[in-house]
Each structure stands twice: as structure tokens, then as C-alpha cells.
């Protein structure tokens, strides 16, 4: 068989294999269930990559410092300059320490805010943090470091101190995949906290979401805060989802078109709360 024919055969084979993969995936994630070792490997890789990232940054900083200090000492031989160098190093060291403390302070603030949320929620929750994001352009999802062994299950709500982050799409032993509220497959029932108008917030695949199924003449204004209605029992009632930023009312249309800015700042996603049980803590 010629190289070109072989290539075409393999291309067609893989093409239809991918298509059948998509089809199988449509019918209850059959292939994903058949690939638990790959899923496990992907999870381990997420954890490893996350650890390597932290270590790598520290190593790179040390390396840069070493190179810098070498060049300085080679050039400057006088005692005074050495003293200056020593002091500079001390300042750098202190600066690094300060950065660490600042980071710890920020983390502490965030954790305190989450703790307040946890207390007011009254639901059983578990703390988590993101260890990776989806590399695909066709999904807005993250991977978090808690899984079935921590009491997380498919359908668990994921929150941070500012608002709703998303929902657990798939839960594995040590980690879970979370679909973010910006994903096009995501929708959540909401209430306008000012006027009480109800609607559905849907993801768009971009930074903002849309408010859907709100009749054109209803009282919704830019700046209104949308909160969870608690109707499906997945999310705690009254938790912030997003703010209405823009409304388009076109005559003849039954529903208005509204853009919603999520409360959560996805660029600064830190510690999260995963609702373990939908039953309230007594």
C-alpha cells in the first residue's frame, strides 16, 4: 500500500472513530466510562502540573537571583560595594518574604470570607481550589482538588465568597470537573433581588452570561443583582450569580435580551466551597 493511500485510510479511520466518539459521548459518556485509566492519568497530571508550577516558579526565581548576584560580584570588588550588595540581597530576601506574607494575607482574607459564607449557608460544604482549567476552546470548565472521597458528587454546587462558580459535572475519586457558569451548557434559575422578577441565566462561552425567558415589559434594570432562586435545590437560595449590565428591548419580541456579568472574578479564582449535601445542617 502506498504512503498516500495508507495515510488516507488512517485519516478516514480516525475521522470516523472521532465521530463515533462524539456520538458515544452523546449517549451517556460511554467512552469516558470505558477510559477510567486515562481519566485517572489526566487527574494525576493535573495535580503534578499544579505542583510543578509552584516549584518551577520558586526555582526560576532562585536561578535568576543566582545569575544576577554572580554578575554583580564579578564586577564589584570593593568592600563598600560588597556591603551594598549584601544589603541589596537582604532587601530582596525581605521583599520576597513580604510578597509571601502579602499572598498569605490575601489568602487569609479570602478564607475568612469563605468561612463567613460557610456559616451563613447552613449547608454541609468542603473547601477546594482549582488545579487546572480546560485546554479546549469548546468548554469553560476547571478541575478542582476534591472528589468523591471528600464527599463531592456530580451535581454539587460550587461557590466562592462572591457568588456561584458552577456545578460539578464529573466527580472522580480525588478530583472533579466543574462546569463554569460561563459555559454554554450551563443554566441557572435566578431572581432579581430588587424586583423579584424570575429568569434563567445561561452561559455564552464568553466572559458574560445572558438572562433569558424574561418577558419584555418586566421590571429589570442595569445594575440589578441576580441571585439564585433555590428552586431546583442545587444551589442555596439567595446566593449572588451576577449583575445585569445591559438590556435590549426590541418591539415585537416576547422576551428581553439582557447581558449579565458574573459576580465571580474568574481571573482570580482562589479557594472555593463545594456543597456536599443539599440538606441543611441541623
Amino acid at each position: 500500500m502506498g504512503e498516500k493511500r495508507l495515510r488516507l485510510t488512517i485519516f478516514l479511520f480516525l475521522f470516523f472513530l472521532s465521530l463515533s466518539g462524539v456520538m458515544a459521548d452523546l449517549k451517556g459518556k460511554a467512552l469516558m466510562k470505558a477510559l477510567p485509566p486515562l481519566e485517572w492519568a489526566a487527574g494525576k497530571l493535573y495535580l503534578l502540573a499544579n505542583q510543578a508550577k509552584g516549584k518551577g516558579i520558586g526555582e526560576a526565581e532562585n536561578l535568576i537571583q543566582n545569575i544576577k548576584s554572580h554578575f554583580v560580584s564579578a564586577k564589584q570588588l570593593q568592600k563598600e560595594i560588597q556591603e551594598k550588595e549584601r544589603l541589596q540581597k537582604k532587601i530582596q530576601k525581605l521583599n520576597r518574604k513580604l510578597t509571601t506574607y502579602r499572598e498569605a494575607y490575601r489568602e487569609n482574607k479570602k478564607l475568612k470570607a469563605l468561612l463567613r459564607v460557610k456559616d451563613t449557608l447552613g449547608y454541609k460544604t468542603v473547601g477546594a481550589y482549582p488545579i487546572g482549567g480546560s485546554p479546549s476552546p469548546w468548554s469553560n470548565s476547571i478541575v478542582i482538588n476534591v472528589g468523591i472521597k471528600d464527599g463531592v458528587d456530580t451535581g454539587s454546587a460550587v461557590l466562592d465568597d462572591l457568588g456561584v462558580v458552577g456545578i460539578v459535572e464529573e466527580a472522580y475519586k480525588e478530583w472533579s470537573k466543574v462546569t463554569l457558569i460561563t459555559d454554554p451548557s450551563f443554566s441557572i434559575h435566578v431572581v432579581d433581588s430588587r424586583s423579584g422578577v424570575i429568569g434563567v441565566v445561561k452561559g455564552t462561552g464568553r466572559k458574560w452570561c445572558t438572562l433569558n425567558y424574561v418577558v419584555e415589559d418586566r421590571d429589570v434594570k442595569p445594575g440589578d443583582l441576580l441571585v439564585t432562586s433555590g428552586m431546583a435545590g442545587v444551589y442555596p437560595k439567595g446566593y449572588p450569580v451576577g449583575t445585569v449590565v445591559e438590556i435590549e428591548r426590541e418591539p415585537g419580541n416576547l422576551f428581553m435580551e439582557a447581558w449579565v456579568k458574573p459576580q465571580v472574578r474568574f481571573s482570580r479564582l482562589g479557594y472555593l466551597l463545594v456543597v456536599q449535601s443539599r440538606r441543611k445542617v441541623p
Binding site: 465521530l19 486515562l38 485546554p135 479546549s136 468548554s139 459535572e169
Partner: peptide, 17 residues
């Protein structure tokens, strides 16, 4: 890429192919 993103197996495999 599909396994990492976890939402639709085959989409990126198809496009990259």
C-alpha cells in the same frame, strides 16, 4: 485535549486530525 476538558470526547480529536 478532550479528556482534559472532559465535556465532549472527539471534538478536538476531529479538528486536530
Amino acid at each position: 485535549q478532550d479528556i482534559f476538558s472532559g465535556n465532549a470526547l472527539g471534538i478536538n480529536a476531529l479538528s486536530k486530525l
